[in-house]
Amino acid sequence: MRTKLIVPVAAAVTAVLTLTACGSESGSGSGAGSDGAGGSVGPEVPVTGIHWTVESVTVEGKKTAAPEGAHIEIGAKGRATGNFGCNHFGADVAVEGDTITVEPADTTLIGCPKDLEAFEKAMTKAFSGKLTLKRADKDLTLTAANGDSIALTRQTDAPLVGTEWTVTSLVTGDTAASLPAGTEKKAHFVFGEDGFVRGSLGCNSFSGTAKISGSEITFGRLATTRRMCPGPEMTLERAVAKVLRGTVTYEQQHRGLSLTAKSGEGLAATAG
């Protein structure tokens, strides 16, 4: 499924992430609560400055698993940024004790597949207003007075080299596309310390040189196996192979990676 971008992705994401914080934060997860049986957030359990991966969202009693890449990061200066599952967002927030108040969010305007649109609507509804914070080990739950909630898990940043990156979407110019049906998690790759990249294009295994310099990666010619696979897998393979060719620019944020060729064709991947 292909959907048209309403605004350029890079510009919109930059705009969201660089907006000046105009909210206030009265604490970094501090407050009178404790992280005991009640699970409330105490002073020893900060919530700011952490990359929280969204596990699921529950709205009006319906629980929906989050797509790859959905996350929230609450800044120490009263600003939360993240991804609703397709579009990036930024929102003013105020953390006081075991509550967080979330103002209406600014978002990029990427046209998304219907399943991602449905999740984004649910998460947008849940991540708003006054929410109670409840922490248990590496998990954090945000709950509204009406019972709507977001389940989060703390994640550490993934290094570019040594991480298995799984392709989650394809981009052509200003058009984003979901992966062909049935090919989810089939294309993946790892940059090695030896200067090689190895993985699967979606059907065939591959390897080749990959020189990382600044914000660019230069791929050498890829050597691949020669298996024939079903149509959707071959479609994905051709698209991924086209991106992993020559010099591309890359952008990495926490556990997400995007590669963009000079032609405008690219892909997005998440740490496996």
Rank of each mutant, 00 (worst) to 15 (best):
E68V: 05
G69L: 07
A70Q: 10
A70Y: 00
I72F: 02
I72N: 06
G75H: 04
G75D: 02
K77Q: 14
G78Q: 12
G78L: 05
R79S: 11
R79A: 14
T81G: 05
G82D: 12
N83D: 10
F84Q: 03
G85I: 05
G85E: 09
G85F: 07
G85D: 13
C86A: 05
C86G: 14
N87G: 02
N87C: 08
N87Q: 04
H88E: 12
F89T: 02
F89L: 05
F89A: 09
G90T: 15
A91Y: 13
D92Y: 10
A94F: 01
A94W: 04
A94V: 07
V95W: 00
V95E: 03
E96W: 14
G97D: 08
G97Y: 05
D98Y: 02
D98K: 11
T99C: 08
I100S: 03
T101D: 13
V102Q: 01
E103M: 12
E103C: 03
E103H: 11
E103K: 13
E103D: 10
P104D: 08
A105P: 03
A105V: 06
A105R: 13
A105W: 04
D106G: 13
D106I: 15
G111M: 09
C112E: 00
K114Q: 15
L116D: 14
L116E: 14
E117F: 06
E117R: 13
A118L: 08
A118Y: 00
F119L: 01
F119M: 11
F119W: 03
K125C: 00
A126F: 03
F127D: 06
F127V: 10
S128Q: 11
S128N: 02
S128P: 01
G129W: 07
K130G: 03
L131P: 12
L133M: 10
R135C: 03
A136T: 10
D137R: 04
T141L: 09
T141W: 01
T143P: 07
T143L: 11
A144W: 05
A145K: 12
N146C: 04
D148K: 07
D148I: 07
S149L: 07
I150R: 06
I150S: 03
A151C: 10
L152I: 00
T153C: 03
R154N: 12
R154M: 09
T156Q: 15
T156S: 14
D157V: 11
D157K: 07
P159E: 01
P159L: 04
L160I: 03
G162A: 02
T163D: 10
T163M: 06
T163F: 08
T163S: 11
E164H: 13
E164N: 12
W165S: 01
T166K: 07
T166D: 01
V167P: 11
V167A: 04
T168A: 03
S169R: 11
L170C: 06
A176R: 09
A177I: 02
A181K: 09
K186L: 13
A187G: 04
H188A: 13
F189E: 08
F189Y: 11
F191A: 01
F191Y: 09
G192L: 11
G192M: 12
G195M: 01
G195A: 08
G195F: 04
F196R: 15
F196E: 15
